[in-house]
Simulated assay, not measured.
Amino acid sequence: MTLIYGHRGAKGEAPENTLISFQRCLEHGVNRCELDLHLSRDGELMVIHDPTLKRTTGLRGKVIEQDAADLVRHDARLGGPGWRQPCPIPRLSELFERCPFEHWQLEVKSASKTRSVQLVKAIDALVKRHGLEQKVCITSSSREVLRAAQQLAPHLQRGLVAEYAWLDPLKVAKHYDCQLLALNWTLCTPERLLKAQKQGLHVSVWTVNEPALMRRLADFGADSIITDFPGLAVRTLS
């Protein structure tokens, strides 16, 4: 059976990477999610896709330049589906407290060696505090991030985010001892899928929003899909 992950919560239905978006995902009975992380200036894990605030809040500046207490006051509903109430940027700790997902893909964008170490250490500490060691996977397309995760938090699952075919994703995933492969749907051929699964990888395909594609990937035997429309995915695959 193909599992469903909500992409940034339920990105197609509510403002991405906000509490309301993750709650909407859970309301559909989808208890797995994917989200994006950046560090605040004071070292807290903030749930936001871009390194800058502009696209989702309309404000100037970088996430890393502001403290968490200021970031959580910013309204992040810009650019998504229309929403009447303000939707603040959440701390990851708030989502861990309020959203009972059974599995989380925590994506870390490319980062310097130092930043990668800081991010992985922060994730590890927070995951331990909430007792979620068996329920999270640190995912990234960045070798620096995967290396840091492999060295500093080997007890947590790792996942390679693969968007382009020019790097052999299976080879890279094996090198960093990954358990999950987050594969762009354009790269998901039946052959590659089978080869990855034989390598012991859970293959999670993104971003899958069309019912016909959802069904096709399920027929291929994809382990999971990541979608902006978890409600539609439930109706299509049930």
Rank of each mutant, 00 (worst) to 15 (best):
S140K: 00
L106C: 05
S141T: 11
L170F: 07
R143H: 11
T139K: 02
A165D: 13
P86N: 04
V145T: 01
P100Y: 00
S116G: 05
Q151V: 11
S141N: 09
T139V: 15
L167H: 05
H103S: 11
L156F: 04
Q105T: 08
L146W: 08
R98S: 15
V120R: 01
K135S: 02
E133Y: 00
V136K: 03
F101M: 09
L106D: 03
Q150P: 01
F96H: 02
P86M: 06
V136W: 03
R98M: 14
Q151D: 13
A125T: 15
E107L: 07
E94F: 07
C87T: 11
E133K: 08
F96Y: 09
K121M: 12
L106I: 14
E94W: 10
E133F: 03
P154Q: 00
K113C: 12
R143L: 08
I123P: 04
V117F: 09
E163A: 11
H175F: 10
P169Y: 01
C137P: 06
F101E: 08
L132F: 12
Q157Y: 08
L119W: 03
Q105F: 12
A111Y: 07
R129Q: 15
W104K: 00
Q134K: 13
L167P: 03
T139I: 15
A149G: 14
D124K: 07
P154T: 00
F101V: 07
A149P: 03
S116C: 06
L160W: 10
A173P: 03
L92Y: 01
R98H: 15
R129H: 14
A149F: 03
Q105S: 13
V108G: 06
D124T: 00
R91F: 09
Q105Y: 09
H130K: 11
Q157N: 14
E102R: 10
E133H: 07
R91Q: 15
Y176V: 09
A125Q: 15
K109I: 04
Y164N: 13
Y164D: 14
S112Q: 07
Q157G: 01
S93E: 15
R98P: 05
A125P: 05
E97W: 06
L146S: 09
G131S: 13
S142A: 02
V127M: 04
K171H: 13
G131N: 12
E94G: 00
R91V: 09
S112G: 12
I123Y: 04
S110T: 14
S116D: 00
S140T: 03
K174G: 10
R91P: 10
K135G: 03
E97F: 04
A153K: 05
P154V: 01
P154M: 01
E163K: 11
S141I: 09
L146Y: 11
R143F: 08
K171A: 13
Q150V: 04
P88V: 12
V161Y: 10
A173R: 03
L160D: 07
V108A: 13
K174Y: 12
A149S: 11
E107A: 06
R147N: 15
E97C: 11
K128H: 14
I89A: 01
K113S: 13
L170W: 09
A111G: 00
